[in-house]
Nucleic acid binder design. Structure first.
Lengths: 138, 138
DNA sequence: GATATTAAAGACTCTCGTTATCTATAATAT
DNA sequence: ATATTATAGATAACGAGAGTCTTTAATATC
C-alpha cells in the first residue's frame, strides 16, 4: 500500500518545472539526470503529465517540457491522479452495494483527496524559496 | 495503490465476530466459508489479528476465534494497521530530510489515519442492526 | 494417555502491477 | 536534409500480494 515511485518522480519533476523561469523548456535528458533516472523511463511519466494537461511538450531541436499555463492552479491531487489514475483505495470484495465498511473507508479517502486537491504545488515552491532566502540573509 | 484483499477480509471478519453474541467462538472453517476463502489463507489473516490483540484464539476442540475484550474500542485503523503494517503512503525518493513534498503528503495521510482511528467497528454493526430493524418493521 | 480438532508456522507457487530498457516512429528547428 | 527531441510499442526483470500445501503445537474429550 504505497504510492508508486512514478508519482514520486512526477511530483518532484513538476516542482522543478514550476520553479523554473516562466517559459523555459527542459529536455528529458536533463530532467532524468537530476533525479538519476533513465531518460526513457522518465519520459513515460512525463507523457502522462502531458496527456493530463499539466505540462506541455514540444519535440524537436530546442524542444522539451515546460509547465502548462495553469501552473498556479496545479494541485498535488492533479499529479497523483495523472499518474495513479482515478481509483479508490478500497473496494468491498463481498457486497455489491451498500457496504457500510466501504462507505466508511471511502469517506476517509475522500477527505484525503479533498485535502490534496487543496494543496497547490506552487506553494511548495514559494515555501522553498522563502526558506532559501532566509538562509542567505543569515 | 490499493488496500490489500487481506485488509478487506480482515475488516469483514472483524465485523462478523463483533456482531456475534458475546463470548461465542467461531472456527476458521466457518469464517472461510462465509467469505468463500480457503481456510489456510484466512487463517494467516486471523493470526495477524490475533497478534495485534484484536481477537483471541484457542486451539483444539471447541476452539476458534472470538473478539477480544476491547471490542467496543476497535477502530478501522487498528485493523488496517494489523494487516498492512504501520507504513507511510509516501516516502520521498530523493531527499533524505526536509522534503516539502513528503511533508505535505504525510500530513494528508495523517489526517486520513486520524479519521480512521476515530471510526469504531462497532458503529458499523449497530448501524447495520438498526437498518435491519427498520426493514423488519415495514 | 490416546485421539480428534483446531490454530500457527514455514515453504512454496502463481499472478500481476510496477519498474525499467530497448527500439522504432513522429514531430520540430536550423 | 539533418540533428534533436518527444511518443509509442514491445518486452524483460522484479517484487509484493494472493493463495495452497504440509507440518507442528495446543487443547478438549473420552
Amino acid at each position: 500500500m504505497k504510492y508508486s515511485n512514478a508519482t514520486n518522480y512526477a511530483l518532484h519533476t513538476m516542482v522543478y518545472l514550476i520553479h523554473l523561469p516562466q517559459g523555459n523548456t527542459v529536455g528529458v535528458q536533463e530532467l532524468a539526470k537530476i533525479q538519476k533516472l533513465s531518460p526513457t523511463y522518465l519520459s513515460k511519466i512525463l507523457t502522462k503529465l502531458t496527456k493530463a494537461g499539466l505540462i506541455e511538450s514540444t519535440p524537436g531541436v530546442k524542444g522539451g517540457y515546460k509547465i502548462s499555463r495553469f501552473q498556479n492552479e496545479v494541485t498535488f491531487y492533479d499529479v497523483i491522479k495523472a499518474i495513479e489514475g482515478d481509483t479508490n483505495l478500497f473496494d468491498c470484495s463481498i457486497h455489491h452495494e451498500g457496504c457500510l465498511i466501504e462507505e466508511t473507508m471511502r469517506q476517509a479517502e475522500e477527505n484525503m483527496k479533498k485535502e490534496l486537491q487543496a494543496k497547490l504545488l506552487i506553494d511548495i515552491v514559494k515555501k522553498a524559496e522563502a526558506e532559501r532566502s532566509v538562509e542567505t540573509n543569515q
